[in-house]
Amino acid sequence: MTDAGTAIAIDARGLTRQYAGVTVVRGVDLALPAGSKTALLGSNGAGKTTLLKMLSTLLTPTSGSFSVNGHRAPSAEVARSIGVLGHSPMLYEDFTPLENLQFFARIYGVQDAEPRIRDLLDQVGLWRRRNERTVILSRGYHQRLALCRALIHRPAVLIADEPETGLDPEGIELLDEMALAAPGLTVIAATHRIDHIDAWATGIVRLDRGRVIEDTSSVGLAAPEGAPA
């Protein structure tokens, strides 16, 4: 719980990661309140992607630990609680959008997957193209489909690394509406789009050479300007 009585969604203690003896992320502590939207800022090489990879359980921390909604990572509960949106869309290019979402729905054990898939594809404007091979879709549509993949299992936490990559203004609006500013969803997203964070972020964490130098993630949870009600 935070001082204001809000539950903590991501609780990280002393996360550190080294590559070949070089410390890329050092002693990061985070306490992100449930429903908060945190913009992860920092220059290239600050350690944003490495930190996000640890939080998404893709990388094991050299030291330190974290939990998601009270479940210590890594675990199946944590895997079901998080959705990940990365640089790469992480989609099967030889599958159709429908097949991609059917596969991810199945491995996440989504009940009543078909209406959920239709709803997501409708929202991102891909229902009409659901049976085309993913490889022929544009970069923007890849990212929209990746958004559907990340949200298919209704995660409590979204971990995103430069999620605006490849999206047109309409796509960025969809991203805000469905994910970054979605009510109830806890978000931590690395971004270089400083002009865009006012639209969704409730706080920031700034990294410099692997250390946290500014953290306002748990300051307040007032609805961001322009966020949907």
């Binding site: 893709l58 895997a79 990365g86 290019e93 991810f104």
Partner: peptide, 13 residues
């Protein structure tokens, strides 16, 4: 190459 290996590794699979 498609990044789907990462998607499998952070999933409950």
């Amino acid at each position: 190459d498609d990044g789907t290996f990462d998607a499998l590794m952070f999933s409950p699979v």
